[in-house]
Design a protein around this nucleic acid. Structure first.
Lengths: 191, 191
DNA sequence: GTCTATAAGAAGATAGAC
DNA sequence: GTCTATCTTCTTATAGAC
């Protein structure tokens, strides 16, 4: 059971998550967040000492949500190829947001990676979450540890590249075509 | 012959270009720029009315420099495959900056694409420059117009994806491995 | 064309009443 | 736990002397 405070805190994190995605971390002000939540100015500083603390809570929320997705795909299929295909299908399912705002994980890391190495290290955990899961799938397909890492980063990179281009050109057709190619690439692995 | 004013203007653009790349557009202030150039506060507003005007000048400078590179590759090789390989070799040559700051074109478009559609349209010209050149090369390799566009955007996306992952993980080894894969992919085309 | 001073606003963060 | 007021700093931009 959530107390009133927990609920307010969760709402701040949820709206901050959306705003950081849609406008960027620097592009989102405390005012933007409290306006979205519908609370008053001072409240945000009751729950979070600094803006960086909000970001860390947002990253944790992302980790929970994406972690749940990965668990779902793992539970749904025994064949690692089907799991990997769930991963690339996510890209097609989220095409509207991806073309409008880019990849939530990629754009956040890109922004923080410029000149905030400490915050980017926190945000990198989101990439690690996907990377480690992908490595597991390629390992299950018979790859060595090194090969599996290379394949995981290759697929992660393909996904990021598609997201960047689709975002720049607002192009959902390209996104779908590239997803289909990734699916073909996955299907050529054998157990 | 450059007048004194032209030289100051060019220096402002050159330093702004570096700073926008290293710290992001929003992350760079007028103070940062004048400090880097070594001129006084007011000068920048003598040459540029707004910050957006500086960005447009920076984009034009990028267009000139990358345009010159493309012309060089075109002049150096008759075989479009060799030209394409020059393109991917650029990624390996610039690995230090790419792992530290990401792709100058990709990160700029990603930042502006969040909530500045008008500025992002200007920055997209940088992608168009590469895209159109890549399309020409794939056309010369016998692709139809539609195929050539798809192949150009595919390679552009691969390059962007590699840059994102290499930046996130500060990983030059991955970058070189992916460049080698792109080279292999290019070599399988026949005239 | 160069330099100084400052305007006008928005940002993150804090203090304290209720 | 909620709300108001304010501090300090930094931002873009402008005005005007030299």
């Amino acid at each position: 059971m959530l107390s009133k405070g927990d609920k307010t805190r969760a709402e701040i994190v949820e709206h901050a998550k959306s705003l950081f995605y849609e406008r960027g971390y620097d592009g989102t002000s405390f005012t933007d967040i409290v306006n979205a939540v519908g609370v008053y100015r001072g409240n945000i500083n009751y729950y979070f000492k600094t803006k960086d603390d909000i970001l860390k809570a947002v990253i944790d929320r992302h980790l929970e949500e994406f972690g749940a997705l990965l668990a779902e795909w793992t539970a749904r299929h025994a064949d690692p190829r089907d799991r990997l295909i769930d991963f690339v299908h996510m890209i097609a399912e989220r095409q509207a947001a991806l073309t409008r705002y880019g990849c939530p994980i990629g754009t956040l890391n890109t922004e923080l990676g410029k000149d905030r190495p400490e915050l980017q290290r926190s945000a990198r955990a989101l990439f690690d979450l996907f990377k480690d899961w992908l490595v597991e799938q390629f390992r299950a397909l018979g790859s060595s540890s090194d090969e599996a890492i290379a394949l995981a980063l290759h697929l992660l990179g393909r996904a990021q590249g598609v997201a960047v281009i689709a975002h720049v050109y607002q192009d959902t057709v390209l996104l779908q075509r590239e997803v289909a190619q990734m699916e073909t690439w996955i299907r050529q692995f054998s157990l």
